[in-house]
Nucleic acid binder design. Structure first.
Length: 562
RNA sequence: UGGGGCGUCGUCAAGCGGUAAGACACAGGACUUUGGUUCCUGCAUUCGGAGGUUCGAAUCCUCCCGCCCCAGCCA
């Protein structure tokens, strides 16, 4: 028995379902569906819908179908179907044997259309597209009835079967619902139900030359599958009367309830299919799985986890307000998850050589270090130390500000998991004046504690041993667009962030990173979370920055500059 | 302009006539061998505006203002 639940996220859709359950409106259990059109890759906005539909099904012990809404062969393909299946699975959802295609219903849909003709609810209209548009009227003027509106049932039946048989050219005729050309809702002014399109379908091939429109196919597919709650986005609100009109006349005993919610908008990115396709097709990104893309496949390659994405979708809620969610919330969810699960490692992105003058030449030490400071169960690893090291260029300043807790003339700093070292001198390149090497001394007693005199060491920096480290390439990703709402601009390409990708090819990672598996995630201490990219080939590790660590230092310095 | 929706903190979002949850962001502070994590603290006398009903309104009524969607043989 399905019961209203408590303690889970609540929203107006769950309120409606709870009501339906209380009143006993449902014959069986709750049934939802996720109905993407296979003409593109799914993105974070789809993920919101996936989480909603599958989440509802599991919360109410019902079912959620995966249905490919493939009623327009233009642009649809098996590649997209496969990507959608892979991505929804990866997000953590399972539709068992309920994988459906609207194209599997083409014959049934055709019969339903015939029925509509027989009951006088549909007719074949032979106006061309321009004429149909002209006759539709405007927001303020009613439309005019088609001269073909009152054809006999026999003539309509004959014409419609000949449309199917391929006797006519594209656009010669359409099947239209006979509703009301004066309806204030334009959707109800005799909407087109079927169009002739001599285009091969990726699943049905050349079998059909007429294809049902969304409004006709979607509601009937829902009813056929016994969907109880058909959840879609706000822009379909105007189509609801038509949805109900069609189902009422053809499958009245099984009428799904359409509920609309606000689609997701995310700051600093675009989520419209058209714009995403443009980014891919015109090469502004390297593909659907470019780690900067808001696609599920892009986020997966970037290193985001399904848990983080699901949690994000739960956090943003479901309502009917237009929204623009701050990416920082997504980043928060990603960090929250990665902080728990990733081992900590050291990697120097922009190396600066450091020689420890008082450390014996040829000597080396191997320290056992925790993989995670708060989770000892994640085990330990070995970190090697020797006389020549590399530190981050950013961790040394010739003339640092007072609150800078790192290395500079006369300063000392702790090397993470190792000794406290003190600056002695620097070596500059004579031509450029650039600091190319540092000489320091270390305090032997500081390996496992503070200096002998108890003086406080403020800063801790990461490092690698020259003799032990492994080379790596690191790709630093930033937001794809430089303005909050690029989707609002027609020429959104102008708002692309020129610094959305920086490739660093001479990074040094600690020895434990010598062999890494694509997809595995790490925290590079003090830098951020990183993920092994599939481009990692033999001998050379490639890491994607998933998201930087929160950083109160750059915030302070940025503040100083103002 | 006709129709359909929506307006609660910088961004989301609870609230369903009884006197504004929570999250992110932001700002302080504690702790810290990650300027990370964690932990405290602060952050809407006010709910698009104006009237009205009521002992009492973000919640009910009226009018006004603003934003989004619809005139594809796309979904």
């Amino acid at each position: 028995m399905t019961q209203p639940t408590t303690g889970l996220p609540t929203d107006f859709i769950r309120d409606i379902i709870d009501d339906d359950l209380r009143i006993g409106r449902l014959k069986g259990q709750v049934a939802t569906r996720f109905p993407p059109e296979p003409n593109g890759y799914i993105h974070i906005g789809h993920a919101k819908s996936v989480c909603l539909n599958f989440g509802l099904a599991s919360q109410y012990q019902g079912t959620c179908n995966l249905r490919l809404d493939d009623t327009d062969p233009t642009g649809e393909s098996m590649e997209y179907v496969e990507s959608i299946i892979r991505d929804v699975h990866w997000l953590g959802f399972d539709w068992r044997d309920r994988l459906y295609y609207a194209s599997d219903y083409f014959e049934k849909l055709y019969q339903f259309a015939v029925e509509l003709i027989k009951t006088g609810n549909a007719y074949v209209c032979s106006l061309n597209a321009d004429e149909v548009r002209e006759n539709r009227g405007t927001f303020t003027e009613p439309g005019r009835e088609s001269p073909f509106r009152n054809r006999s049932v026999e003539e309509n039946l004959d014409l419609f079967s000949r449309m199917r048989a391929g006797e006519f050219a594209d656009g010669a005729h359409v099947l239209r619902a006979k509703i009301d050309m004066a309806a204030p809702n334009i959707v109800m002014r005799d909407p087109v139900l079927y169009r002739i399109k001599r285009e091969p379908h990726y699943r049905t091939g050349a079998q059909w030359v007429i294809y049902p429109m969304y409004d006709f196919a979607h509601c009937l597919s829902d009813a056929l599958e016994g969907i109880t709650h058909s959840i879609c986005t706000l822009e379909f609100e105007n189509n609801r009367p038509l949805y109900d009109w069609i189902v009422e006349r053809l499958i009245p005993e099984n009428r799904p309830r359409q509920i609309e919610f606000a689609r997701l908008n995310l700051s600093y990115t675009v989520l419209s299919k058209r714009r995403l396709i443009e980014l891919v097709k015109k090469g502004y990104v390297q593909g659907w799985d470019d780690p900067r893309m808001p696609t599920v496949t892009g986020m997966r390659r970037r290193g985001y986890t399904p848990e983080a994405i699901r949690n994000f979708c739960a956090q943003i809620g479901v309502a009917k307000n237009d929204n623009l969610i701050d990416v920082s919330l997504l980043e928060h969810c990603v960090r929250e998850d990665l902080n728990e699960r990733t081992p900590r490692v050291m990697c120097v992105l922009r190396p600066l050589k450091v020689v420890i003058d008082n450390y014996p030449e040829g000597q080396e030490e191997h320290f056992e270090c925790q993989n995670h400071p708060q989770r000892p169960e994640l085990g330990v690893k070995q970190v090697s130390f020797s006389r020549v090291l590399y530190i981050e260029r950013d961790d040394f300043m010739e003339d640092p500000p007072k609150k800078y807790h790192r290395l500079g003339p006369g300063r000392e700093v702790r090397l993470r998991n190792a000794y406290v070292i003190k600056f002695e001198r620097m070596v500059k390149d004579e031509a450029s004046g650039e600091v190319v090497e540092l000489h320091c001394t270390y305090a032997p007693e500081t390996l496992n504690g503070p200096p002998a005199d108890g003086r406080k060491i403020q800063g801790v920096i990461h490092w690698v041993s020259e003799a032990h480290c492994v080379p790596a390439e690191v790709r630093l990703y930033d937001r794809l667009f430089s303005i909050e709402d690029p989707g609002a601009e027609e020429d959104f390409i102008n708002d692309l962030n020129p610094d959305s990708l920086k490739i660093l090819t001479s990074c040094y990672a600690e020895a434990s990173l010598e062999k890494v598996a694509p997809g595995s995630q790490y925290q590079f201490e003090r830098l951020g979370y990183f993920c092994v990219d599939p481009d990692t080939a033999s001998g050379r590790a490639v890491f994607n920055r998933i998201v930087p660590l929160r950083d109160s230092w750059t915030r302070i310095t940025a503040g100083d500059k103002k």
